[in-house]
Design a protein around this nucleic acid. Structure first.
Length: 257
DNA sequence: CGAATTTGACCGGCGC
DNA sequence: GCGCCGGTCAAATTCG
């Protein structure tokens, strides 16, 4: 097949190129899998936390203090957990909306400051959110949303018009591109979660090692385009019915364990 | 210079 | 009624 005297024939060069491409593709897939493993690990941790909270009353920290009802079942609120760099103090949660900060407080049960934001995308939008680092895991930021938006997201409305990697926060500073949004979980089935369709998971990957959303050429080397690709990837995941099915299966298994 | 952020003051709910 | 605490306001400051 290979001629030592003449060197590789043109079609052999093509094969070498093909192998190189394949190698590159596998390398990228490996990177993707690394991210997924990290995400799944974080999810398990959160599920454990939620499971423990569901078994214990919420005011376990200091039962003698007044029981301020923070999340009435009748208020539209939801919590999301965002994995960020521990050194990152910006408390920015990129969720597709524009927020205006109107306050910051250090709360009693958490040394990290809690930031208060109002949605500034539409005048009169009643949605607020509180952002604070988790006490248990400093790499997690907990964002609590209250209310329902009366408009769409920046991403949905202006995806083609806005720089996709720019933060929707008022100043437009860049978000740490390394953060990983790991879950969007309403505290109870009664409360309606605010739309946040950036959940990453590789759960369906185990059943289908080559799903359609992985056929895309995912490259995480270029940081400027990472956000676009991650968002596109996340959107593909969410649209995939197998993903939802597998995710439900993992949640059920985790709770059973 | 306008808009967004910061931060101390203020307000209201709740427990004692 | 008082004090604690979370949430909000608004003047001052910062930033683009």
């Amino acid at each position: 097949m290979f001629s030592v005297m003449d060197g590789p024939a043109p079609h052999d060069k093509g094969m070498v190129k093909m192998f190189q491409d394949e190698l590159e593709r596998l390398r990228k897939e490996n990177e993707t899998l690394k991210v997924m493993v990290e995400v799944i690990g974080s999810k398990c941790k959160i599920l454990e936390t939620h499971f423990q909270e569901s078994r214990c009353p919420p005011y376990h920290h200091d039962c003698n203090k007044r029981a301020r009802i923070e999340e009435s079942p009748f208020t539209k609120s939801s919590k999301i957990f965002v994995k960020v760099d521990e050194e990152d103090k910006s408390l920015v949660v990129r969720d597709g909306y524009q927020w205006r900060k109107y306050g910051q407080k250090v709360t009693k049960d958490n040394p990290s400051p809690r930031a208060y934001y109002r949605c500034s995308m539409a005048p009169g939008c009643p949605v607020k959110k509180k952002v604070q680092r988790s006490v248990e895991d400093r790499t997690l930021v907990v964002a609590t949303y209250e209310g329902l938006h009366n408009h769409g997201t920046v991403d949905a409305v202006n995806r083609d018009h806005l720089p996709s990697c720019s933060d929707p926060s008022p100043k437009g500073q860049l978000v740490n591109p390394d953060f990983t949004l790991i879950t969007a979980m309403p505290p109870s089935s009664i409360q309606q979660p605010v739309t946040l369709d950036l959940t990453l998971s590789g759960s369906s990957f185990a059943q289908n090692p080559n799903p359609s959303y992985l056929n895309k050429n995912l490259s995480f080397g270029n940081r400027s385009s990472d956000c676009d690709k991650i968002e596109e990837y996340a959107a593909s995941l969410v649209r995939d019915p197998k993903f939802a099915e597998a995710l439900a299966l993992i949640v059920a298994r985790t709770l059973n364990n």
